[in-house]
């Protein structure tokens, strides 16, 4: 049997894909621009009329949801890059070489993780400049980064599905629009109890609310409660299902 080196191959291919990001840093900036605009709009224009209760500053309330929107718009680039690899034949070149089959996909996923963390860091920096303050401990920060990484992984595997099944470049990135919109129907912008009952029910039972509420508690340095387990269950579930579907789609290309 010919030996394969999955880790080394994934490393080489991730290096290649990160180079794409470095050569077009606008992809990171573009990812950060819309969330920053939303942050400015909601904090300085609409936020004054929103009472989130408990004397919480609106920027503190809003930031977790904005970070999720950042990631949701950033993962579209993964679908885009993967689609171009498939269309241009590079993906077939890699698959016909003696390298681990999953390396070509994992490289895109890891690149997404790095690029989105950079975008998120930029948005957090802007939030600090706007008066965002947190009492989070180092452990709470690590938990926040962990949740965001898991969220990015789950959404990136959805992006891989979109990239593998797309018929056009536009189709490859269109999947992210509903993901970007989902935080609006959650506790990310306003407390759910201000919504009509059916909307509030949906908002409370979709993953964004649990994730946003846990991150908010972590930032505030208060106890997280059961939300974090609901959030983790959602994220691990989406990650597992999406990666299995992606693997099936990849196998179907063989037929």
């Amino acid at each position: 049997m010919t030996a394969i080196h999955p880790l080394a191959d994934t490393g080489v291919l991730t290096g290649r894909s990160l180079r794409h990001v470095l050569r077009s840093p606008d992809t990171i900036l573009t990812t950060a621009v819309t969330p920053i605009a939303l942050l400015l709009l909601f904090v300085y224009v609409l936020g004054g009329a929103i009472d989130v209760g408990g004397g919480v500053a609106y920027v503190d309330y809003l930031l977790p949801g904005i970070l999720l929107i950042t990631v949701a718009s950033g993962v579209a680039y993964t679908a885009y890059r993967l689609f171009l690899d498939l269309q241009g034949g590079l993906f077939d070149r890699f698959r016909s070489m003696p390298i681990a089959g999953s390396s070509a996909l994992w490289a895109h996923v890891l690149t997404s993780l790095v690029a989105n963390l950079v975008s998120v860091a930029i948005v957090v920096g802007v939030a600090f400049a706007m008066g965002f303050r947190t009492g989070a401990s180092v452990w709470a920060w690590l938990a926040i980064v962990g949740v965001l990484m898991l969220f990015t992984l789950a959404l990136t595997w959805l992006a891989v599905i979109a990239g593998l099944s797309a018929k056009s470049v536009d189709g490859a990135s269109a999947f992210s629009y509903p993901l970007i919109f989902l935080p609006f129907i959650s506790s990310a912008f306003v407390p759910t109890d201000s919504m009509p009952a059916p909307v509030a029910w949906f908002a409370e039972h979709q993953p964004v609310t649990a994730i946003v509420d846990s991150m908010r508690a972590l930032f505030a340095g208060s106890p997280v409660g059961a939300d974090i387990w609901v959030a983790l269950a959602w994220l691990v579930g989406i990650l597992a299902v999406a990666s299995v579907v992606a693997a099936l789609l990849l196998r179907r290309r063989m037929r």
Binding site: D9, R16, G89, R93, P98, I99
Partner: peptide, 29 residues
Amino acid sequence: RASISLTGQFTAIDDVLTGRENMVLVARL
């Protein structure tokens, strides 16, 4: 796969990378 190389119908090169980087990529893989 260890015995072959495929030059497909469409040029399978990475447009963002330079010629040398493309070659080094394959050599490292």
